[in-house]
């Protein structure tokens, strides 16, 4: 399990362009808000709280191809599955690395962005907590969708169509500061569903 985390982190370090693309993508979506809606500070503040969730969802959708697909296509997934006989451990370590590589940078950059959108400290912390909890749930969903669509063609659109409806609850509750316990509950639910479905998908494609 630790081996796999180490390996994935090293791999993402070697191809760090991916990581920068994701962060820039996230930032660029948010930067579009003032262009589209004007620079009135109250309005920006309100829009930021919602659009940050859309930006997170889209950033996770574009990373979903990198969770299992590359390893599946070049054959590394076979070795990894052979060495980790309990696939659930493999899946959990993928959750950790996927969150660490693609969600943590977004959360780190969030405070800087939120000051650009005139949010005060308190609001920033609230959004941060919500995104922190919600991003886990989204990562769980992204993982199982990735595992289910390993062998599919035209995948990125298909994955988006499958994932966006599943992200809807997170986006509904995300923009309300008081609803972090609901996000926690949703993340826990998606963890249980995801761990079974991801393991099932990997086993099927392993055959």
């Amino acid at each position: 399990m630790l081996n796999l985390i180490k390996r994935d982190l090293l791999l993402s370090f070697y191809s760090s362009a991916n990581f920068f693309f994701t962060v820039s993508f996230f930032v660029l979506i948010l930067i579009l808000i003032p262009f589209a809606f004007g620079t009135q500070s109250d309005q920006l503040k309100l829009l930021f709280k919602g659009v940050v969730w859309i930006a997170l969802a889209l950033s996770i959708i574009i990373t979903v191809d990198r969770i299992y697909n590359a390893d599946y296509e070049d054959g590394n997934l076979d070795i990894i599955m052979q060495k980790n006989k309990t696939i659930e451990y493999l899946v959990i370590s993928k959750y950790v690395t996927h969150w660490f590589i693609y969600c943590l940078p977004l959360l780190v950059i969030l405070p800087i962005l939120s000051f650009l959108f005139y949010l005060d400290y308190f609001e920033t912390i609230q959004i941060f907590i919500n995104l922190f909890i919600g991003s886990f749930g989204m990562v769980f969903i992204a993982n199982f969708v990735s595992a289910l669509t390993l062998g599919a063609k035209r995948t990125i659109f298909l994955k988006a169509i499958i994932m966006i409806p599943l992200f809807v609850p997170f986006i509904i509750f995300g923009s309300d500061a008081a609803s972090w316990p609901i996000l926690l509950g949703l993340s826990m639910l998606s963890f249980v569903i995801s761990i079974y479905v991801t393991a099932y998908g990997l086993r099927l494609y392993g055959e």
Partner: peptide, 12 residues
């Protein structure tokens, strides 16, 4: 986990 999650969601 599912039970706890459902309870958290329902109460909030």
């Amino acid at each position: 986990i599912v039970l706890i999650a459902v309870l958290i969601i329902i109460f909030n």
